[in-house]
């Protein structure tokens, strides 16, 4: 009996010449990438037109491992780079894949403005509640009172409710899953990739080396149990009610927002046509 090694279907999206990756054992980012790769397989988008843009941080390394046109930009600035990429060539499908610190702290201003403009990009935010790459500092997503290297006695701040932030700024598609919910997450990513306008998917993921260990929350397996037990699926939930202020709170997951409205380019082209008439050639349409 001969055994043939079956090729992993997502391998075609990976830069195998860059393996092994930098992520720690038990880290949730790899799981999210696996879901993303499967979503890419299903979404029907021409892969040559699919671009991935990351900022800096552990999740910021995702762009480097995906065999797509990929851009590893500066800290916090993946979204404005993606905005330029998309507006200069609207045929491209542009995905921003980055972490909570990158997108919500240093890049927070760009996140809210891109959502407000309804730029047609997909933003995937892996939230592991702290800064991993630099060694576990406090993030704007750290649970109240949890410990980080720069809040060694506990975080006095309150975390962002990221789905609510994105929704209230105008995102047309907003969802949250954990890395426990791989099937649901994959389906949601397919939707997000095909959604016209600004879509935002938060993925809660374990950071075993730093956040879990420092807060004595156990291993990644323990966090998977925690995700499983605490999660409540509520599609269409009011995003005001999905905050994660403290660690013991229930985790509301699901697809919260899915609305249709004209994106930036739709509006741009319509206004220009109205004002300039035939002198204007619609851009990218």
């Amino acid at each position: 009996m001969s055994t043939t090694l079956r090729e992993n279907p997502v391998e075609q999206f990976l830069r195998t010449d860059r393996m092994p990756h930098i992520w720690c054992p038990g880290c949730g980012i790899g799981t999210s990438v696996n879901c993303f790769a499967r979503a890419v397989l299903e979404c029907g988008i021409d892969l040559d037109k699919l671009c991935i843009v990351s900022g800096i941080g552990c999740t910021g390394r995702v762009a480097g491992y995906l065999r797509l046109d990929s851009f590893h930009t500066t800290h916090g600035r993946a979204i404005p780079f993606a905005t330029g990429l998309k507006l200069a060539n609207p045929d491209l499908h542009v995905v921003v894949y980055s972490g909570d610190g990158d997108l919500a702290a240093i890049g927070g201003n760009h996140l809210i403005h891109a959502a407000r403009r309804n730029i047609d990009i997909t933003v995937i935010c892996v939230n592991n509640f702290n800064y991993g790459m630099t060694g576990g500092q406090v993030a704007p997503t750290t649970h109240h009172e949890k410990v980080a290297t720069t809040t060694p006695y506990g975080d006095p701040e309150y975390p962002f409710n990221l789905p609510d932030l994105a929704a209230s700024c105008g995102a047309v598609f907003v969802a949250r899953w954990t890395t426990y919910h791989v099937v649901q997450l994959t389906k949601t990513l397919v939707k997000a990739l095909n959604k016209k306008g600004f879509s935002f998917v938060e993925i809660l993921a374990p950071c075993p080396t730093l956040y879990l260990r420092r807060n004595k929350l156990g291993t990644s397996v323990d966090l998977m149990k925690y995700f499983k037990e605490k999660s409540v699926i509520k599609h269409g939930a009011n995003t005001k009610e999905v905050g994660l202020e403290t660690y013991d709170k229930e985790i509301i997951v699901g697809e919260f927002v899915d609305i249709d409205k004209p994106d930036y380019l739709d509006n741009y082209n319509e206004i220009m046509k109205k004002r300039l008439g035939d002198k204007f050639q619609p851009w990218g349409r």
Binding site: V53, T74, R77, T83, L85, K86, L87, A88, H110, W283
Partner: peptide
């Protein structure tokens, strides 16, 4: 295309996205 960005940091990277789009 022209876009007024939210600050100069955004402007100075946005234009580089456009360059890589051609």
């Amino acid at each position: 295309m022209f876009i007024q960005m939210e600050d100069e940091i955004a402007s100075s990277i946005c234009l580089q996205g456009a360059v890589w789009a051609g």
